[in-house]
C-alpha cells in the first residue's frame, strides 16, 4: 500500500470547483511535484494534505491511517510556504526549535536537533539572528529546517522558491533535492515552474482547471505528453496545422510539404489534428530519416545558450527551431531561404 493516498478528492468553494476527481498514490521517500498554471488547484490539493482545507469529497490516508478530518496540528506534516512564514519575534534557533518545544521535547534534545538542522542547511553561524536580518534565500532555508526539525512524515512545499531571484532559486533547488535525498523524506512540491518540477521530482503531476492532466516521470511528461495541455505547458512546442492526413501511411502535408510521423500519442486525436514538434528537434539542413521543410527566416531571437529561429514555411505557418549556441554555428540571416529538418520519430499528432 502507498504511503500517502488521495482518493476521489474534490474541493469546491461555492460554485467554483477548485479540485475534482483527484486520485494519487505516493510512495515513501518519493518526491512528487504538482505542476500547473495559477488557479489549477495544486495549492488547494497541497493544503488539503496539510489539513488547512477540508476536501468536499474523498479521503486522504497517510501511512495507512485516514487523516481526512484530522486537525492540521496533529498530522505531523511539515510545511514550507512561499512567503517563508518565519516567526518574526523569534531567532533562527527559536524558529527551528519551535515545533519541538510545542511537543515538549527536552531542552537538550531541542538544542541538539537545532544544531543538526543548522548544519544541514549550512547556516550554523546564523542561530541567533532574527528573520529580518537575513536574505530571502537564507530565510527559506531556515523555514525548510524548521519544517524538517519535527521529523515530519511528509514534507509539503508550496512554491517555496517563487519569491527568490533566479540564481538563488537554482541554488536552493539543488539544496532541497540534496536534503530530501539525504533524509529520504516523502515530499510533495507545488510549483508553476516546469524547470523546477522536472529537475527535482521523481514524478510530476500536471494539473489544469482542478484536474490531473498527466502523472509521470519528468522524462515521460516531457517526451510523451498525453494531452495538448501538457504538451504545450511543459516545454516549448510547435503545434502546426496539417492537411491530407493518411493515418495508415502515417503521412500528411504541412504548408503543402510532405511529412511522415511515427506515433500519435496514447489519447484519441482531435477532429482537427495538429502536428506537434519540440523546437529543439529541428536543425538547419537535411539528413536521413528526417522530414524536410523549406522556408524563409523571419526572426532570430538570442536566448543565451539557445538561439530561437522562427521560419515561415508558407501558408502563414511559422515554426520555432531552437539551435544550441556555439561559435561554430553558421547562423542564417533574417530573410534567408533555409532548409529545416526534424526526425520522423520526433513529431506526433494531437
Amino acid at each position: 500500500m502507498s504511503f500517502l493516498t488521495l482518493v476521489d478528492i474534490s474541493k469546491t468553494f461555492g460554485a467554483t470547483v477548485a479540485v475534482a476527481d483527484f486520485n494519487l498514490d505516493i510512495e515513501k521517500g518519493e518526491f512528487v511535484s504538482f505542476l500547473g498554471p495559477s488557479g489549477c488547484g495544486k495549492t488547494t490539493t497541497l493544503r488539503m494534505i496539510a489539513g488547512f482545507e477540508l476536501p468536499t469529497t474523498g479521503n486522504i490516508t497517510l501511512d495507512g491511517a485516514d487523516i481526512t478530518f484530522q486537525p492540521s496540528n496533529q498530522r505531523n506534516v511539515g510545511m514550507v510556504f512561499q512567503a517563508y512564514a518565519l516567526f518574526p519575534n523569534m531567532t533562527v534557533a527559536q524558529n527551528i526549535g519551535f515545533g519541538l518545544q510545542v511537543r515538549k521535547t527536552p531542552p537538550a534534545e531541542v538544542r541538539r536537533r537545532v544544531d543538526e538542522m543548522l548544519t544541514l542547511i549550512h547556516l550554523e553561524e546564523f542561530a541567533s539572528r532574527y528573520p529580518y536580518q537575513m536574505s530571502g534565500g537564507q530565510q527559506q532555508r531556515v523555514a525548510l529546517a524548521r519544517a524538517l526539525a519535527i521529523q515530519p512524515r511528509v514534507l509539503l512545499l508550496d512554491e517555496p522558491l517563487s519569491a527568490l531571484d533566479a540564481k538563488i532559486r537554482v541554488e536552493l533547488r539543488l539544496e532541497i533535492r540534496r536534503i530530501q535525498q539525504t533524509l529520504g523524506i516523502t515530499t510533495v512540491y507545488v510549483t508553476h515552474d516546469q524547470e523546477e518540477a522536472l529537475s527535482l521530482s521523481d514524478r510530476v503531476v500536471v494539473m489544469s482547471r482542478g484536474r490531473m492532466e498527466q502523472v509521470g516521470t519528468p522524462y515521460e511528461i516531457y517526451n510523451y505528453p498525453t494531452t495538448e495541455f501538457v504538451a504545450s505547458f511543459v516545454g516549448q512546442l510547435n503545434l502546426l496545422p496539417i492537411a491530407n492526413l493518411d493515418r495508415d501511411a502515417r503521412s500528411c502535408t504541412l504548408a503543402g510539404q510532405p511529412i511522415r510521423f511515427e506515433h500519435s500519442g496514447d489519447r484519441p486525436i482531435s477532429d482537427t489534428p495538429r502536428l506537434a514538434i519540440r523546437p529543439e528537434e529541428f536543425w538547419l539542413g537535411d539528413g536521413q530519416e528526417r522530414n524536410l521543410l523549406r522556408g524563409r527566416v523571419e526572426t532570430l531571437i538570442f536566448l543565451g545558450a539557445i538561439i530561437r529561429v522562427r521560419v515561415d514555411i508558407g501558408d502563414g505557418v511559422l515554426i520555432s527551431a531552437d539551435l544550441f549556441n556555439a561559435r561554430s554555428l553558421n547562423l542564417p540571416r533574417v530573410g534567408d531561404e533555409v532548409l529545416v529538418s526534424f526526425p520522423v520519430h520526433a513529431c506526433w499528432l494531437i
Binding site: F52, N73, F98
Partner: peptide, 15 residues
Amino acid sequence: IDVRTLTEAAQSLGA
C-alpha cells in the same frame, strides 16, 4: 504581519 500564513506555519508545527 501575515496572520494566516504564520498561523498555518504554527499549526503545521503542532501548535
